Simulated assay, not measured.
Amino acid sequence: MDHKTIDHSKTYLITGAAGFIGYYLSKKLLDQGCRVIGIDNINDYYDVNLKLNRLEDLIYYEKFTFIKDDISLKEIIFGIFEKYYPNIVINLAAQAGVRYSIENPDVYIQSNIVGFYNILEACRYFPVEHLVYASSSSVYGNNKKVPFEETDIVDHPVSLYASTKKSNELMAHTYSHLYKIPTTGLRFFTVYGPKGRPDMAYFGFADKYFAGDPIKIFNNGDFDNDLYRDFTYIDDIVEGIGRLLNNPPNGKVRHQIYNIGNNNPERLMVFIETLERAFSNALDRNIQFDKVFEPIKPGDVPATYASTERLQKAVGFKPETTIEEGLQKFADWYVDYYKEKVNEFFSKGESSK
């Protein structure tokens, strides 16, 4: 993150501060001496202990204030804005996950629609210099044209999660138009790295392996038509956000959308093989996942591929971390963080020989 882009005199409100991206962004800003107000409801969509572990890293910073609450509660959000008057707001709180939205639509509407509406309303009544919010590559749906560009039509989402993210973009545009709130939406492409989300495929593959279970790959075992993903390492995501924070959009309607992706889609099978090698390096032994191939799941898309030209033009940055480098950092962290589970797995394996 370029120091020149960060204004240390400002107060930054980060929703979803105990989440994957929220944690890393909070830490980066705090490391540079910024004042950060973090809010998170610490829900149990995935392992709460991991969220608490992230928070433990943040609470020692003198300039960090944490509020355990929910953005879907309007009076709570207004109270926070009234007390702290944030200059810049980064809304990363959301109910995540494509597949989960098929079975649990209510939580997506509460968090992603009602919650974001509350943030917009608070920015309206307590004016901010910039509202940056998380959108998602999922808004592109089954877009066949690659790479995905921000100007592409995104009116055909294939999951409720994607619908809520597209709705956020429309809501933000409207509030920018009506109330002159500078807003920037970020379409993230498959973010990964240490302390990441356990519901993401790469994390799940590791969990399955150390539980002695096969991994499920939803591509029908069709290697010629494998799934492609634009995997983006967490440091690149945070760098991109950081450069945009003090660069609010200008123009008649002060709203802009950016892709943050690696602009280098990888075959899912190549990604899995790279993950196997990363764990082999971390453990100094040959690691190979037991694989089961199944049909693609409803709501999944065959390929994600970001054009990053708009971001590069705006702030001179393009994500460049390779999956070899990024997955090695993840594997090293995983082996350390879950060392008891890892050791137990190998001790069982040795004793059964």
Rank of each mutant, 00 (worst) to 15 (best):
E276K: 00
T151W: 14
L244R: 05
G326L: 03
S72D: 12
T322W: 01
G316E: 00
E121K: 15
R54P: 02
I260C: 04
I287T: 03
M269Q: 14
L244A: 06
T183F: 04
Y179N: 07
Y161I: 05
K341H: 10
D332W: 06
V158T: 13
P265I: 07
R243S: 04
F346S: 08
A303E: 11
N104S: 09
E150R: 01
D230E: 04
S72T: 11
T308W: 09
Q288A: 15
N91K: 02
V292E: 15
R277T: 10
P214N: 04
V154Y: 02
Y100D: 12
S137H: 09
F126Y: 15
G242S: 15
V158A: 11
K329Q: 12
P265W: 05
T232G: 12
I153N: 11
S351N: 14
P194I: 05
P249F: 06
D290T: 11
G240F: 03
D70Q: 01
S163F: 12
D199E: 12
P295V: 01
F78P: 05
G19R: 04
T321N: 06
G19C: 04
E276C: 02
L268M: 13
A306T: 06
M269V: 10
D300A: 11
L178F: 06
V335R: 07
K341D: 08
I37V: 08
F148T: 14
A314L: 08
P182M: 02
Y209L: 12
N247K: 09
N259L: 01
K51T: 01
N225M: 09
L52C: 10
T174N: 14
V342R: 10
P86D: 05
E273I: 00
V48L: 12
W333A: 06
K216T: 13
Y140E: 10
A96Y: 14
Y337W: 10
P265G: 06
D300V: 06
K348L: 14
E324K: 12
G251L: 02
I296K: 14
T190N: 13
P298S: 10
M171A: 14
Y24F: 15
M1D: 13
S159R: 02
M171Q: 13
D7P: 04
Q312K: 15
A314I: 10
K353R: 14
K51N: 03
Q95N: 09
I71H: 09
P198K: 03
R243H: 01
G141K: 04
K216P: 03
G251V: 03
H3I: 13
A314W: 10
K28A: 15
R54F: 07
D300L: 08
N343M: 13
Y100H: 14
T322N: 05
T151N: 15
A278T: 02
E169D: 12
P302K: 13
P86H: 05
K339V: 09
D300F: 10
F78A: 06
D230L: 01
T11A: 13
H156Q: 15
A206S: 14
V335E: 00
G79C: 00
V139P: 02
N259C: 00
L25A: 04
I241E: 07
S137Q: 08
G16M: 07
I109S: 06
G251K: 06
K180C: 11
S176Y: 06
V315H: 08
L311N: 08
P319R: 05
L311H: 03
I287N: 10
L13T: 00
K63C: 03
